[in-house]
């Protein structure tokens, strides 16, 4: 089977997270699993570890999951979510150091070709390197 790396988008804002996921689906296509979460359970701006874990499980692929985040807490909460995953999944999730929208589109484009998690991360992070 042709598995592709899954993509998770974590923003403080649900609208940004959803909009970014929509861009990925429309620009790259539906062959890559994309999940998103944004805001805290009260509907305010923020990020939430439990929701991030749910999103990672939704986007799960045997090839792994690349997580794209926006600011501060999105990154630390995503790292905490990864720590709380079962050990067999923990090593197959990476939080990318990349801009959330551009990183998500480029990571998904790379993932669509069947690339490994490391390759997907490298492409997303190319944007930060230059």
């Amino acid at each position: 089977m042709n598995d592709t790396v899954g993509i998770v988008i974590v923003s403080h804002s649900k609208d940004i997270a959803k909009g970014t996921a929509d861009m990925v689906r429309q620009m790259v296509g539906s062959e890559v699993r994309v999940a998103f979460c944004g805001g805290n359970p009260d509907g305010q701006l923020g990020t939430n570890v439990a929701l991030i874990i749910d999103a990672i499980n939704d986007a799960w692929s045997p090839k792994g999951v690349a997580v794209l985040v926006d600011l501060g807490g999105a990154e630390t909460n995503s790292e905490m979510a990864v720590e709380m995953l079962p050990p067999d999944r923990r090593d197959l999730v990476v939080v990318c150091n990349a801009p959330i929208v551009e990183g998500a589109v480029m990571a998904a484009t790379e993932a669509a070709g069947g690339s490994s998690l490391e390759q997907v991360r490298a492409v997303a992070e190319e944007l930060s390197a230059g």
């Binding site: 620009m27 790259v28 296509g29 589109v105 484009t109 669509a112 070709g113 069947g114 690339s115």
Partner: peptide, 9 residues
């Protein structure tokens, strides 16, 4: 994106 995806095939 389309060009890259096709190239990767």
């Amino acid at each position: 994106v389309k060009l890259t995806k096709l190239a990767k095939k």
